[in-house]
Simulated assay, not measured.
Amino acid sequence: MNQEISDPAPRLEASPVRNFGLQLSSTPRGARLARLLATEQLRMWGVPAHPAELIVAELAANAVTHGRVSGRDFRLLLYVVGDTLRIEVTDTRGDRLPCPRHSADEAESESGRGLLLVDALADRWGVVPGPPPLKTVWAEVGAGPAGQRPVPPRQ
């Protein structure tokens, strides 16, 4: 006699939370290392590097350019939960919040347009004030295979 035995409660496999963090010097070299090391970590996880590497590059460059305090580092944190990659860059200038520049502002300044790129590439992004003197600028993108990014929720 053949019997089928079924498990009364199907097991759900939890997707692991993957994270990677490091502290880097607030210098152009530190910003470059942030991009290179983040790209390598994403490759090791099997997560598409585009557009995350561009977002890391912009946020790290902003931390070095606008969030730099002599003798203080910035921190890069990447983590994947489910199908979402979150990128966080924390610097020590909580008093200087990022402000994207729009086309009318272009004539006044060469800086600030990198956040327009982050806004265009990320599903969501924002700023979280930390305990003084910190602030964290974060962005989220789909971490699934290219072309299978989840649709971000409307805010």
Rank of each mutant, 00 (worst) to 15 (best):
R113A: 07
G147T: 02
V89R: 12
G130P: 05
W138A: 06
T84K: 05
D73A: 15
A14F: 03
E40F: 00
R68K: 14
A38D: 11
A143G: 09
H66V: 05
G112R: 00
E13N: 11
E106H: 13
G130W: 08
G144E: 03
I5S: 14
H50F: 09
G130K: 12
A49K: 11
D83C: 04
L78S: 02
N19L: 14
P48I: 03
G112I: 04
V128T: 14
G94Y: 06
D95W: 05
A104G: 13
A52I: 07
L36M: 06
P16H: 10
Y79S: 09
T136Y: 04
V56M: 03
L59N: 06
R35N: 10
S15K: 14
Q3N: 15
V64H: 07
P51F: 01
R113H: 14
V69F: 10
H102M: 12
G30Q: 01
G94K: 03
R96A: 09
P48S: 02
P133R: 11
L33I: 01
L116N: 11
H50Y: 05
A143Q: 00
P8L: 15
N19M: 15
Q3L: 15
I87G: 06
V69N: 09
W125V: 02
D123W: 10
Q3A: 14
R29W: 03
R96M: 05
S109A: 11
L22E: 12
E108W: 07
G114T: 10
R75V: 07
A61F: 00
L54E: 00
Y79N: 11
L54S: 05
R86E: 05
P10T: 03
E110H: 11
D105M: 02
E140M: 02
L37N: 04
V17A: 11
E110M: 09
L59E: 04
P145I: 07
P132N: 08
L24C: 04
N62V: 06
V81C: 04
A60N: 02
R75C: 06
T92P: 04
S25Y: 12
P133T: 12
L116M: 13
L42D: 07
L54K: 02
L85R: 06
N62M: 02
G46R: 03
T84S: 08
T90Y: 01
G147E: 11
R149N: 09
V80A: 01
V81N: 10
L36N: 10
V118R: 05
L85N: 00
G126D: 12
E4F: 15
R154G: 13
T90L: 07
R96K: 10
R75S: 12
A146R: 14
Q155D: 15
E40P: 03
A143T: 11
P48Q: 06
V80G: 00
E53I: 06
R124C: 09
L115V: 03
T136Q: 08
P28T: 01
G144M: 06
L22H: 02
D91S: 04
R154S: 14
A120V: 04
P10M: 06
G112D: 12
P98G: 01
G112M: 06
C99N: 09
R149Y: 11
